[in-house]
Design a protein around this nucleic acid. Structure first.
Lengths: 201, 201
DNA sequence: TGTACATCAGTGAACGCGCGTTCACTGATGTAC
DNA sequence: TGTACATCAGTGAACGCGCGTTCACTGATGTAC
């Protein structure tokens, strides 16, 4: 029954929690992490401001939920980029590693406001769940490089921190207009050099 | 005359602009860059909210002023750190370079809220004046390394972006609890490796 | 040195606004018999 | 299958608040003569 469904859609939402998070992401993307308000998010979804309180204890809880979703999305973008790389040898593992970095940087710079929310101290990030998703990608990538003998043990050790620092730093500086995005290849090359991966160019 | 001075101190401030910026920094340091309000800043100084408008066109102008002052302070900290290094040879230039990085990281992690204001998209940074102060320090440091033959031309090229990305990234990740501060030496070592500077340890 | 006056640097009341959060409520849904 | 009722997922009005900004104003200061 169309009426039934329409009423249901209007009244008992069914997916309010997800809808609120999605709407919040739309608003953050547009107006920035400061300037986010529960009332605006509720209005965007078409629900009363107080409805949110059935799903989130307070505004901070919503913001943290957003943060965790964004970490997921970023990781998914990276996974897609890796999946596009064909082959299995040492050079494929290098290519995957590069594409992971490129995907990260591309996502960050194309979504500056979302990236600011993630890393600007706005949200509590659930380390166990989401940091480790980003972290695991990086760890696996480095492990693969090590397994193919592309990097040695001493470079493997602490590689995650080294790589993430450089890529995150470049993303952040580019977003804030302190580094031209076109310089990212330089940063990527320096990361490879610091890990002992020879550049082809 | 004491009375005269007291009245003057109360009324015509003389240094309101500076006082507002200083008070704002105190408040940002404590409560974060979001949560800064012109009214709170004015109250902190002991002046009416509208007084600020004789010195700053709007809130954003004050925030940008803060940002520029903070970039200065950070650069000054680094200059102090460099100044403590004795000697003139190649190894002194390496030591200076390391201390510059350490000073940057130490300042950032000890003032997370100030650092967030600088790099969180809150303020317009006056590139010509202040970015170049940070930039010039880095440029000079790298030039000195090159002059002493510690790094070669290909490493010198683009060195600023590479170093700043890594150090800024590590600072930001540490502040957000995504990297233990004790890992910074690893990052510093990797920077040196990527520039071709041999680690002593 | 004293006075008149322009300018400077503040005051304080008021504006309209959007915010987070609360509360008593009610319509829709699911379940037990 | 039908009914009674508990629970779920919303409504909407209201709260008190702090905000950025404006405006007409006034006391203090500096300057010209």
């Amino acid at each position: 029954m169309a009426t039934r469904t329409a009423i249901k859609a209007l009244y008992h939402h069914g997916n309010l929690e997800t809808a609120l998070v999605d709407a919040a992401i739309v608003l953050v993307r547009e107006y920035g992490p400061d300037h986010l308000s529960l009332r605006a998010v509720s209005a965007e979804v078409g629900v009363s401001p107080s409805a949110s309180y059935h799903h989130f204890g307070d505004k901070d809880a919503l913001v943290s939920a957003i943060g965790n979703v964004l970490f997921d999305r970023l990781a998914i973008m990276q996974e897609k980029a890796i999946a596009k790389v064909n082959g299995k040898g040492a050079s494929a593992s290098i290519k995957k590693f590069e594409e992971m970095g490129n995907a990260y940087f591309a996502w960050a710079t194309s979504e500056p406001n979302l990236y600011r929310l993630m890393f600007g101290g706005f949200c509590e990030i659930n380390m166990d769940e989401h940091e480790s998703k980003a972290w695991n990608l990086l760890r696996d990538g480095l492990d693969e490089l090590a397994a193919h003998g592309v990097i040695d043990k001493s470079a493997r050790n602490g590689g995650e921190v080294i790589v993430w620092s450089a890529v995150h730093g470049a993303s952040s500086l580019a977003i804030e207009g302190l580094m031209p995005p076109s310089d990212f290849p330089l940063v990527l090359k320096s990361i490879k050099r610091s890990l002992g991966i020879k550049s082809k160019d």
